[in-house]
Design a binder for these strands. Structure first.
Lengths: 231, 231
DNA sequence: ACATTATTTAAATGTTTATTGAAAAAAGCA
DNA sequence: TGCTTTTTTCAATAAACATTTAAATAATGT
């Protein structure tokens, strides 16, 4: 599943495809424009969450594109600059670009900067990686699960399962839904697998709180049930 | 209100005043030195956040000033060079200048570069080169690692790795992240390399404290885990 | 009571990490 | 420079751990 759409603008198709390769590996969706005017048009249509923008381009150069986009949007922009143009990039930043990368670049570095800029720009739809209910604390950043403040070592699948369930309290998930959403779409295993993981989680979590419980919905699936106040 | 103090060093008072005018309009605080030795003295006293430094100056030239300041500080420095003057970029980089501007300059351009350099330096630096947890002491200034006050000879990579991990306690890093952030983007080696370094660090550090530990997060990576009080 | 669904258990399967020793690379020294 | 030592990397194996499967048992609803 895509974690965001990124528009790559460069007249060198090798560079575009290289970036596409790496970005898609990181689960970004990618669209490509090979010149400035195409970029502006595509920007309207695709509404990307971030733009990787080459400076040296035919028709409209990167700065002009940057300036145009800034007139109507604050979409993050990372400039791609050739080695010779080192000091113009400073002005690029002043025009409203968020970061820059100097060619020839390491693809890994570009990815890192994309992530950093997205993180900084904040309004990305990344939901909190922390869930807390009464004396249960789940932190997917650190892969940490705490019960009454005490850390409990938990394997990744169990971790993701309890996180998924508790992120949407009171919602019932069928086993197949859980296999799709936690294990992944391509997974084709026995749905009893879910039961086993639920069982292990219960071993760790049962009787821990009277304010929530990992409940079986008979004939349907499971839910993380949270009790209302005073109930 | 000032958004930061900038020291301007130039023997031409016209240039100094022009820069002061523009910088103050942008809410920077400005102090001015008209030669090298005055600059060094003022640097100690005023502790500016950035320095605009002319190269051609009587008494001490810009290069010498730059070198002196770099001995004790990483304060950002932008060099001012006259047109026709050959700017030695390699020398500039080696001495630690962050950017340069060629005279005659547009005041707006200087402002843009000042802001860009400040933004960059704000991203990167600011973090202490010393980390301390319980009886572990890491000093990256002089590559020194101490356990219970006793110095332990440690190879550079291990040093950088434990420093990186312990600088962000409890955060999980994947092996690839560590390769990017400790080894560098251009590194293309096997990610198992990280394991070996972790293993060596553990030989040196295991059982040393019950308040922190170098922990494996199965299926994910490693973290420097620090226990809360009373746990 | 019967059919269906859920839980538990244990064993098999698969994956990730730890450990090791040797090779390669880098750094230090004469 | 050439030699030695240290550090880093690589690759193979062993160990640890997680996940899945399958089958037996228990619970639930009609």
């Amino acid at each position: 599943m895509s974690i965001g759409k990124i528009m790559v603008v460069d007249d060198d198709s090798n560079i575009c495809e290289l970036l596409r390769l790496y970005l898609e590996k990181e689960d970004f969706e990618v669209c490509i424009a090979s010149n400035g005017s195409q970029a502006l048009e595509m920007f309207e249509r695709e509404k990307p969450e971030l733009i990787l923008l080459d400076i040296m381009m035919p028709v409209l150069d990167g700065w002009q594109v940057c300036r145009e986009i800034r007139k109507k949007s604050s979409c993050p922009i990372i400039m791609l600059t050739a080695k010779g143009e080192v000091f113009d990039k400073v002005l690029g930043l002043e025009l409203g670009a968020d970061d820059y990368v100097v060619k020839p670049f390491e693809a890994k570095e570009v990815i890192a900067r994309v992530k950093a800029v997205l993180r900084r720009s904040g309004d990305n739809k990344q939901k909190s990686k922390i869930v807390q209910f009464d004396n249960l604390y789940i932190n997917m950043e650190n892969y940490e699960l705490r019960v009454r403040g005490k850390q409990i070592d938990t394997p990744p699948k169990e971790m993701e399962l309890i996180y998924h369930l508790s992120s949407n309290p009171n919602r019932v998930y069928t086993r197949d839904q859980l296999l799709d959403e936690v294990w992944g779409f391509e997974y084709y295993g026995d749905s009893r697998t879910v039961d086993v993981h639920v069982k292990r989680l219960r071993e760790k979590l049962d009787g821990v709180s009277d304010r929530w419980t990992l409940k079986t919905v008979w004939g349907v699936g499971y839910k993380f049930e949270v009790k209302e106040d005073g109930e």
